[in-house]
Amino acid sequence: MHEIYNLVTGPLAWLAWGIFIVGSIYRLAIMYILAKKKDAPSLAYMSWGFSLRSIINWLIPFNALGWRRNPLMTVATFAFHICLVVAPIFLLAHVALWDQFFGITYPVLDEKVTDIMTMIVVAACLIFAARRIFQKEVRYVSGFQDWLILVIAVLPFATGLLAYYQLGNYQVMIVLHILSGEIMLAAIPFTRLSHMLFSVFTRSYMGSEFGGVRRVKDW
């Protein structure tokens, strides 16, 4: 246990964070260079104001036409993304580890809250999976990558819940939990999870084109 635990919390953790951070910077830089080289006719229209206008309007649930026409997905995806980001960052056990390893502390959420948030993430993933299976327009376009990232996203949360409730073999579960979290971090720059990096720019561009050239809202 000691060897495995030290491996996943030591070298592998550094590796995962390293791949995530260096990989993200690398992907963003390459994309920017490519945009500079090839997308001048689009870059020319980029505008801070219209970018922010678009981002803000899309961050309001049920504001965009697409959100209004898909209420279940709107609730699921907003809840999913908020919980996915907030829960791991402000989770007591994670902050305790920051504290233990680096002496860094910051406010935490009550465990009851993060517990529910984690369940929300898992539930939302089940909704996403159900859509991929039962909704024909989603099934038609679902491929290996889509299922892969869904599994990558749900595993840290599912194993986190099992570890938290100490169901099953705790030692196995906690290692799986850490490992799956590391896989998710490392996967961000190199799978469709990269929408975390790029969607702010695609959204900004669409906002800029619709605001600046088309003079209409893009939501």
Binding site: M1, H2, Y5, N6, A93, A96, D99, Q100, G103, T105, A163, Y164, Q166, Y170, Q171, I174
Partner: peptide, 24 residues
Amino acid sequence: MRAYHKQCIACHTEKKKGPLACGE
């Protein structure tokens, strides 16, 4: 909290014995 965690886990790590993870 840090004192407790350090006290126990640091020693367990050093001795390669005893629990390390939260739920242990």
